Amino acid sequence: MSQVLVAAVALLVGLLGSVVPGQAAVVRPAAAGPASDPCYVLIQVSPGVFEYVNICPDPDEDGGGGDGGEGGGGPRCDLTEEPYDEFCLGTKACRADIPSPLPESEWPEAHRPSPDHIFTFVQCRVPGQDELYERWRWIEPYEGALPGLGWQALGRLQTPAFTMSFTPAGMTYVGADTQYSIDGLGDGEIIGSVAGPLQATGTLSHVEIDPGDGSEFLECEPDLEERSRGCEHVYLQMSHDQTTEDFEGRPGFAAQARLVYDVTFTMGGVEVNLPGVPDTLESPWNGTVVPVGEIQALVRTR
């Protein structure tokens, strides 16, 4: 009986091979899954929806987002069929969502090929195939994408918080010169963060002021040395019938102001023209209540 047991053990060892003490037998999958593939990154592609996204280019691609040309020989793909007529990825004719529908905070920055690349959804027509190539991926924006990125760059300009005041402080009077001041302008320049290769810069042009009494808006020129802006208006009526009140409960005109900036766009430090993208930016309105009284004159007879 013992001889039969020894023979059975020997046969089992021959079938399984030698086992090193302390090691367990491991069953390995035929192929590695996305979680262990360096080309795949877990991305939140929509609120609450996570997917493994392949961030590695396909073998036939020369680079991201260009025309796919080689040595100046022109594009390698057919860009004659809409909407896949924006750029080439190798031999694939593609389009992309510009600007990216993903907020930049969700981009896999650790894998970004260069600061000029953006992470977005791409659809391509593949020669000889009916099925579209669809992927979230890095691309370097093509020339036609710049206006779309310009809107994104424009949206990254933040106008400063400012306050509005007037003199004579507290209350002005019918027929008197009322001067408005705007404080908190900074140095008159605002610079946005980059959107792909584009960056927007705003230079303060002027301040628009609505006196609140139904008269036309005023335009005030910048006074950057004092970081304030002043211009004058003469109220021709009292504010006793107004519904807005100041902190002391006095009715007044709801005067307000907004900052207006001239906007330029640069790519690599060089200014570019973006048709269809606004070249001015207006801040939100901010204001103050201006009570307007009347100086009573006393007339004496001799």
Rank of each mutant, 00 (worst) to 15 (best):
residue 254 A to K: 09
residue 189 E to N: 05
residue 234 V to W: 08
residue 239 S to P: 15
residue 184 G to Q: 10
residue 234 V to C: 07
residue 288 T to S: 00
residue 218 L to D: 02
residue 271 E to Q: 15
residue 269 G to T: 14
residue 244 T to N: 08
residue 206 H to Y: 09
residue 246 D to A: 02
residue 200 A to R: 14
residue 247 F to D: 02
residue 280 T to P: 00
residue 206 H to G: 00
residue 198 L to P: 01
residue 254 A to S: 11
residue 197 P to Y: 13
residue 262 D to W: 05
residue 261 Y to Q: 02
residue 244 T to H: 13
residue 210 D to S: 12
residue 238 M to Y: 03
residue 184 G to C: 10
residue 209 I to L: 12
residue 181 S to R: 09
residue 184 G to P: 08
residue 271 E to Y: 04
residue 235 Y to V: 09
residue 205 S to G: 05
residue 205 S to E: 01
residue 204 L to C: 08
residue 265 F to C: 09
residue 221 E to C: 00
residue 212 G to M: 09
residue 265 F to K: 13
residue 182 I to N: 01
residue 179 Q to I: 14
residue 210 D to Q: 06
residue 201 T to H: 08
residue 260 V to A: 01
residue 201 T to Q: 10
residue 238 M to S: 10
residue 200 A to D: 00
residue 191 I to K: 11
residue 191 I to N: 06
residue 218 L to F: 11
residue 259 L to V: 07
residue 246 D to L: 06
residue 235 Y to M: 03
residue 254 A to M: 08
residue 267 M to I: 06
residue 238 M to L: 03
residue 259 L to R: 06
residue 183 D to F: 08
residue 221 E to F: 01
residue 267 M to C: 01
residue 184 G to S: 04
residue 273 N to Q: 14
residue 209 I to H: 08
residue 208 E to L: 13
residue 239 S to F: 14
residue 260 V to H: 04
residue 211 P to Q: 04
residue 257 A to I: 06
residue 239 S to I: 12
residue 207 V to W: 00
residue 271 E to M: 04
residue 232 E to Y: 13
residue 281 L to H: 04
residue 264 T to I: 15
residue 272 V to C: 02
residue 201 T to P: 01
residue 247 F to C: 00
residue 247 F to A: 07
residue 190 I to R: 14
residue 277 V to W: 09
residue 251 P to Q: 09
residue 188 G to W: 07
residue 239 S to N: 12
residue 289 V to P: 01
residue 246 D to P: 08
residue 200 A to E: 03
residue 218 L to C: 04
residue 180 Y to G: 00
residue 189 E to Y: 14
residue 202 G to H: 12
residue 283 S to G: 03
residue 212 G to K: 13
residue 283 S to R: 06
residue 233 H to L: 11
residue 189 E to A: 15
residue 182 I to A: 06
residue 256 Q to A: 15
residue 276 G to W: 07
residue 251 P to I: 03
residue 284 P to Y: 09
residue 244 T to R: 14
residue 215 S to A: 12
residue 186 G to N: 04
residue 204 L to T: 01
residue 208 E to D: 08
residue 251 P to A: 06
residue 275 P to Q: 05
residue 252 G to S: 05
residue 193 S to V: 08
residue 259 L to C: 01
residue 216 E to T: 12
residue 193 S to R: 14
residue 198 L to R: 02
residue 232 E to M: 15
residue 240 H to V: 15
residue 276 G to R: 07
residue 269 G to A: 04
residue 251 P to T: 02
residue 189 E to H: 13
residue 208 E to H: 06
residue 239 S to C: 06
residue 234 V to Q: 11
residue 201 T to E: 14
residue 266 T to M: 11
